[in-house]
């Protein structure tokens, strides 16, 4: 990887161009081994999720009545047919994990898109107009923050009736204040800089100033927050699934798989161990990548 960057550097894009920024971002980002490992893992799991029907050895819903609670392949009773074993109704754990990646990743991605989109909009409004708009928006966000996140998400899911969409909306709502606060703070910091004033004097309207002038210069902390949000969303989705309030069985969602396997904890460790392990690994890798992103994008937050 580093070879590639060196060769790129020899062709030196001119400073100030987008290509130059990209190259300098990449050299900062790839300087951290952890961030690279994280990125590779995330790409890998995204590909697996995307091509699940071709990668998974079995149908995730297929119940093999002749193979209930078969242990993983490295046990004497294990079978090559079911690499990570089967659950209590004879479904292949590995295939369910692979299909589960689709749910966890797509729901979490939607959570980030929704809360980031709405959060940026509200944060821009608050930071740009100040006054009562700001007061109302920050007060509402304070109220959201006064509740422990998982509790609020549980309550929202109960209102919307348990399921995939409500879990998504609930968790997006819980994540919202962080984006609003960050955007607002960044906008207030940038608002009186010369380039913004210049743009205003040359006649730019409110919308243009907010979205074209200010927003691009406030993105760095937001992108870092997005990765953090993404990993938190995976954890929260799984927690809701585990508590029976998220994605409903028999959908192979990671948290719901854990809840199902819980009663066989004593006899079938694999049905409990692997879903949790994949949640941990995915979240860990995203956080590693987030650390690298922060170092590369935000010199102020740079790891000391």
């Amino acid at each position: 990887m580093s070879q590639l960057i060196l060769s790129k550097k020899s062709s030196q894009p001119a400073p100030g161009t987008f290509r130059y920024q990209l190259a300098s971002f990449w050299s900062d980002f790839s300087a951290s081994r952890g961030a690279l490992v994280g990125l590779i893992f995330i790409v890998f799991i995204l590909l697996v999720a995307l091509f699940a029907p071709w990668v998974a050895p079995h149908d995730p819903a297929m119940q093999d009545r002749s193979a209930l609670l078969v242990p993983p392949v490295w046990h004497a009773e294990g079978s090559w047919n079911y690499l990570l074993g089967t659950d209590a109704v004879g479904r292949d754990v590995l295939s369910r994990l692979i299909y589960g990646a689709r749910y966890s990743l797509s729901i979490s991605a939607m959570v980030v898109v929704i809360s980031m989109g709405v959060g940026i909009f509200l944060g821009l409004l608050a930071g740009y107009f100040r006054g009562w708009v700001e007061t109302v928006i920050t007060r509402v966000m304070d109220v959201v923050l006064a509740f422990p996140s998982l509790l609020l998400a549980l309550g929202l899911v109960a209102i919307l009736s348990p399921g995939l969409t409500s879990a998504m909306i609930a968790i997006a709502m819980v994540q919202l204040p962080y984006f609003v606060r960050l955007t607002r703070a960044a906008v207030i910091g940038e608002k009186n800089r010369e380039y913004v004033i210049a743009s205003r004097l040359s006649g730019a309207g409110h919308l243009r100033l907010m979205f074209n002038t200010l927003l691009p210069n406030c993105m760095a902390p937001l992108i870092v927050q997005a990765t953090l949000s993404f990993s938190t969303a995976i954890l929260d989705i799984a927690a809701l699934g585990f508590l029976g309030m998220g994605v409903q069985p028999p959908t192979p969602e990671w948290g719901a798989m854990l809840a199902n396997a819980r009663e066989f904890m004593g006899s079938a460790y694999w049905a409990v161990t692997f879903p949790g392990l994949i949640i941990l690994l995915t979240v860990l890798m995203i956080n590693l990548m987030g650390d690298g992103l922060r170092d590369a994008l935000d010199p102020k937050m740079k790891r000391s």
Binding site: L235, P275, L280, L288
Partner: peptide, 22 residues
């Protein structure tokens, strides 16, 4: 600490029960 920060604690609890209790 990054691993701990990324931990799904409901699974962590089950894992510890499996190991230390069962």
């Amino acid at each position: 600490s990054l691993t701990g920060y990324s931990m799904p604690i409901f699974w962590w609890g089950l894992l510890l029960i499996m190991l230390f209790s069962s």
